[in-house]
Design a protein around this nucleic acid. Structure first.
Lengths: 251, 251
DNA sequence: CGCGATTTTGAGAGCCGTCAAGATACGTGG
DNA sequence: CCACGTATCTTGACGGCTCTCAAAATCGCG
């Protein structure tokens, strides 16, 4: 499960962090930058399908996604899987181990992914000496909670069609902010099974609904690229409201 | 909507906080206690059914539940409602306003409820001067995220029967820790409509499933009291695993 | 005792799940 | 450049879990 993973010390300096060139993220002070450079102990690369952290395990590390996609999920006894959310660049992974000692879900790489690695025990130092970063950490967790609430609402109360529309619009918003999408086009590394497992649907029904949405010229999904053909109607179907974007912190 | 609310200054001193007698919560240092007494600006009482914070609104206050139940929910255009979670004593309400400026869900009182009131703008002081409390705040948000993930998994992948079993066992665990339940009995302030709205089910189907579970002697629910008649089987149906309880912080 | 809220029950429909199988895409080796 | 195996996507048939509609029964409370 961890065969294709490797931690490397051949890392990008936080000062040259490729994420920071994006105005989506807030800027660091010099002092914060110095701390982060010390906090970061390495980088971690994983290929699609490999596990990053396992449910009910503990890990000595925390991660920030530097590049690529991952997904967080829970597995039930009958083998079915509920995907909780996708993790994109800037997202934090594994804070649960710092808070509760172990994860209550797993995280796998969805695309080739690069993670910044931080030692778990130093999280306390962050809280103690860098209240701004501590605030950011809380912000990130709260953001994650918000997204889970949105997904819960989708799965609990929306139709298959509406769930799909909502999720794709949601992802488009996130990707757009990261310059990973634009002009109503978005490259996605997941397949229909992932989509079904996130939306609480079966693969077959997901596929049929998707086909119907393509037939009605709402969207298309080919070769890993999603195109929005009628975003207004999709937003209406999904009851999706563009969230006001505030400058996003990250760690 | 806010008719039955009132903020009173006739408050319980944090030093005499009734929650702290419970060993479930971690203890405060003297310094933390002093801060909390100053941080807390009042108490707030609400009757069942009244709104505490509304979706898409901002509030100048943060709250901790001191006594009673509340519930967090989202409303869709067709009037349907998705309850995200219940809030019990010790739970934090309204941190989203501090993080994002406004709430993405509403919070209503479920039972008569008393809340400790904190001014939103002083949250920063907490982060700056009391890293332990900041850590606790993050802990609480992470805990909330964890619960939402569990509910999402229920709604996405479990049968009606299993969802009900899981939720009741989950609530029993929380109530037991607060000395609000024991001996397989738990008083609950919600009705079947609330249950349905949390589980992503219709009222009718929730009722029928509940009746069937009572008929098979798994549990009973009468006059606001839930009794577990066969907790082992319920746990099996729900795939519910007793979470390892770590000392819980609160603010 | 009466009225609104909540719970129950029945009937029928439909969205979505499961099963099965074929089609297509993709990477690998010959 | 083609053969082939695997992963992914599609489609059809059928069943069932859950939904909606409707109405009756019960509870709660003034």
């Amino acid at each position: 499960m961890q065969s294709k993973q490797k931690i490397t010390r051949d890392i990008t300096d936080c000062a040259d962090c490729p994420l920071r060139v994006n105005e989506y993220f807030r800027t660091f002070t010099r002092r914060e930058l110095d701390f982060m450079r010390e906090f970061k102990v390495g980088e971690f690369h994983a290929e699609p399908g490999t596990g990053i952290i396992g449910e009910r395990t503990t890990a000595p590390h925390l991660y920030t996604v530097l590049d690529g996609w991952a997904f967080r999920y829970k597995t039930l006894a009958d083998g079915s899987r509920q995907i909780l959310n996708f993790a994109l660049p800037g997202d934090f992974i594994g804070l649960q181990t710092s808070m509760f000692g172990e994860m209550d879900h797993s995280v796998d790489a969805l695309s080739p992914i690069t993670l910044c690695v931080f030692p778990r025990e130093k999280i306390w130092e962050l809280f103690k000496n860098h209240p701004e970063l501590a605030f950011d950490a809380t912000w990130l967790v709260a953001q994650e909670e918000k997204v889970l609430g949105a997904h819960l609402t989708s799965v609990g109360r929306r139709s298959a069609r509406s769930r799909i529309a909502f999720l794709l619009l949601h992802l488009y918003g996130r990707c757009e902010a990261l310059d990973l999408a634009g002009s109503n086009r978005m490259k996605v590394p997941f397949n229909q099974q992932h989509l079904a497992d996130l939306l609480g649907l079966s693969l077959v029904h997901t596929n049929k609904t998707l086909k119907r949405m393509e037939a009605s010229k709402l969207m298309s999904w080919q070769k890993g690229t999603v195109r929005f053909l009628d975003r207004d109607t999709l937003a209406e179907i999904a009851e999706f409201y563009e969230p006001a974007s505030s400058p996003r912190p990250f760690i």
